[in-house]
Nucleic acid binder design. Structure first.
Lengths: 234, 234
DNA sequence: TGTACATCAGTGAACGCGCGTTCACTGATGTAC
DNA sequence: TGTACATCAGTGAACGCGCGTTCACTGATGTAC
């Protein structure tokens, strides 16, 4: 077979080991959370000595940074793929939930309480803007025509730098923040185990929130059924 | 002065030292989060040796348990006092926000990602039911008359043991969960610092969510303006 | 194709750290007669 | 009021642990002629 890949065997091996380290790191995080992540433990698990990992990661923080980056990247790609497949805002929301439930600690690493003593890198903002962009597209599309402006939308019209030049109208920005915080509210309490003991189904609550955000698009809506989507204000 | 208090000087001293330990523990948590809490560091800060603290707390987990208990107790009392003073659901929500902002790590200790390796005690459920009861009262009062039943309310009618026998109608249970998760969504992202960089005011978002939950009680509401409160379903 | 050299993965010993926790002990405070 | 005893707070030394990280070194893999 023709050797067309640009990577040398050594590079391929490096990437392979790096990938395995991160895989073990994810396993460890899934078990005990990110703050319990230990380089030595990972090395032990791989049958290597601790210092060996310093060939692959500068230090512990660097490894965590890579994990955060991977998580962001993965979520961005997941949502982008769904959107490319025609998913609307509701489908994206369900995709987010599925992504969170697939690996709760991965979700919490990104959106939960920050890891103590760890300083997040800045270059994740590019990816999180990518995520925001995908959702803002969906939010813009989900806006019912003629939705009234609101105090929140007005406020966001003056503070939209975080949208990174996305052309979404202020009402879509408001909808985005509303969607994000509501879904996160359900998800984070569910993942942190605060619903265990209460016996209801968290998915019912999630679906309920989704339904409240995205009223069935009744074509004959008119002013009698103001959708809450994009309202978000007093 | 008459000695009417039942506590001996030794007991009073004990309670005093216990209180100071917990005070220092809160300071430490406020700085570095609960997982960084260290008995030795607290002792050092108090000018004592580490082992001395074992006169007051059985071990580290026991101290954390007391902190959790204190936080729950404090929140329950804060909300109960507000409710006794005539606060409605909106005022209680604002009280919750104020309580969270007063000591973010205290809020996150109770409602955030669980402390790794720490097993929460069971007897906090009594206090958290107390909190739920206060909010359920307010939710029941906030329900617009004739609010339609919803899938979520129907589901909760079958799963209401967590309400501990509170007589709230299913729609109030649904409203409670909706309020709780929405406010937590905004608060937890705000406290975890996920809004920094985006320059908008988190309070505007909080107020917006509150307004969406509690539409101005228009006496002439009728069917033209279905309140979202208590809906929460499809 | 073979030899000389450079590159790089991985090891093992070691450093310093802080932690939770135990234990035997000292000294002060309170209690009983 | 004074003496004998019990209670309890706090100390200092010690144990064992695991961590992140550095360093000098070995041995294998790749490269240049």
């Amino acid at each position: 077979m023709a050797r067309t890949d640009p990577t040398t065997p050594r590079e391929r091996y490096r990437n392979q080991v790096r990938a395995e380290v991160m895989e073990r790191a994810w396993e460890q995080i899934a078990t005990a959370g990110a703050s319990a992540l230990s380089l030595n433990a990972i090395a032990r698990q791989m049958g290597m000595s601790g210092p060996a990992l310093y060939r692959y990661f500068a230090n512990r923080d660097d490894l965590i940074t890579e994990l955060v980056r991977e998580a962001y990247r993965n979520l961005a790609d997941t949502l982008a793929a769904a959107a490319a497949g025609g998913a609307d805002l509701a489908a994206l929301a369900r995709g987010l939930r599925a992504w969170a439930l697939a690996d709760p600690q991965r979700y919490l690493l990104v959106y939960g309480t920050p890891v103590p003593g760890y300083q997040a890198p800045e270059d994740t903002t590019a990816v999180s803007r990518e995520i925001a962009a995908t959702l803002l597209d969906a939010c813009t599309a989900a806006l019912p025509p003629g939705a009234p402006t609101t105090p929140l939308a007005g406020h966001l019209a003056d503070h939209r730098t975080w949208a990174g030049g996305h052309p979404a109208p202020p009402e879509a920005l408001a909808l985005f923040l509303t969607v994000w915080t509501r879904l996160h509210g359900v998800l984070s309490l569910e993942l942190a185990g605060h619903f265990t003991g209460m016996r209801f189904d968290p998915e019912a609550l999630f679906d309920s929130e989704l339904a409240a955000l995205l009223p069935r698009p009744t074509p004959a809506a008119g002013p009698t059924a103001p959708s809450e989507a994009g309202r978000g204000g007093a």
